[in-house]
């Protein structure tokens, strides 16, 4: 019979599961605390604001300069270029798969897109080095093909399957009844798409772009391999830049443990973390709204 022992077992299992699920909170908190602890000396020495707005990043000079502005600017530049590539490519692909493709085509295309988004970034980076960078160097007659443009294009191509896949989900969520109502009023497929389907999926699409942006900003290998690595502030996409992630990846190997340089690299990680955190929270908020708007159609 079911007795005390059973009740005890049930409770015990629930507590074990609960304890294990705290791992997510523990890791996130652990990451935040570790970053803060390791970055604290850098902020103490230079000052948080000073570090962000100062224009010189010369970590190995004597005395060193730890101004993050060029790195932040580099990240933004590369991200902007990448978005210019991935948003149109990703959205068009999403619209095509969700609205235009035939049934059989769809069954093949969804996994295809998923497959593409699982290709490791180092492979894209490698392709950039052996193919795109030389091509851009030749085409624009540059001294080096490693620049914001190259890194941005490769990042854009790489993230378009992600944006396509998430946007496609959003478009798919739009209830058929919405579209039918539009068709019944004599609208054609294009008008229905522009006036009904896309607006209904808008917050889902925006969510996908936000999540894509987070991925691009946080991506390391492609920018490390392709952005050229110069910590300068520039508006020209043909110039080499040094985005935050590549600065961390390139310098941590050389920065001695517990030196100002080491601490400043953690300080960059904090900025990165804050940016992606904000993007994530925004995406979560929007996604919640989106579900609310379309009700429980899924």
């Amino acid at each position: 019979m079911k007795g005390k022992g059973e009740k005890f077992r049930e409770k015990l299992i629930e507590y074990i599961l609960f304890a294990l699920s705290l791992s997510a909170i523990i890791f996130l908190a652990g990451i935040v605390l570790t970053l803060l602890k390791e970055a604290a000396p850098a902020f103490r020495d230079t000052g948080f604001l000073n570090m962000i707005v100062s224009k010189d990043w010369y970590p190995t000079y004597e005395p060193p300069d730890f101004g993050m502005l060029p790195l932040i600017a580099g990240s933004f530049m590369v991200t902007a270029i990448a978005l210019m590539v991935s948003v149109p490519l990703g959205l068009c692909s999403a619209v095509y798969i969700s609205e235009l493709a035939g049934k059989k085509e769809k069954i093949l295309l969804k996994p295809f897109i998923e497959l593409l988004s699982s290709i490791p970034s180092v492979v894209y980076g490698f392709w950039g080095i052996v193919f795109l960078a030389p091509a851009i160097q030749r085409h624009f007659d540059l001294s080096s093909g490693y620049c914001a443009l190259t890194a941005g294009i490769v990042l854009g191509i790489m993230s378009s399957p992600i944006i396509a896949s998430l946007s496609e989900d959003a478009l798919n969520c739009v209830p058929r009844s919405f579209k039918e109502a539009s068709f019944a009023m004599g609208a054609d497929r294009l008008e229905t798409l522009i006036n009904v389907t896309i607006p209904a999926a808008a917050s889902g699409i925006i969510t996908s772009i936000i999540l894509g942006t987070g991925r691009i900003i946080g991506e390391t290998m492609v920018v490390l391999m392709l952005s050229g690595g110069a910590a300068i502030i520039t508006l020209s996409p043909m110039e080499p830049v040094r985005p935050m992630t590549s600065a961390i990846a390139a310098e941590m190997g050389e920065a001695a443990f517990q030196t100002p340089h080491y601490h400043s690299l953690f300080a960059i990680a904090i900025i990165l973390f804050i940016i992606t955190f904000i993007l994530n929270m925004a995406a979560e908020k929007l996604a919640g709204k989106y579900r609310l708007k379309l009700g429980s159609h899924r």
Partner: peptide, 22 residues
């Protein structure tokens, strides 16, 4: 827990690398 999971999935992989290092 859910929010932590969502945020964890958005943390740049290099940041995980730094955490692992430290």
């Amino acid at each position: 827990i859910r929010t932590s999971i969502n945020n964890l999935s958005g943390v740049p992989s290099i940041v995980f690398g730094l955490f692992g290092l430290a």
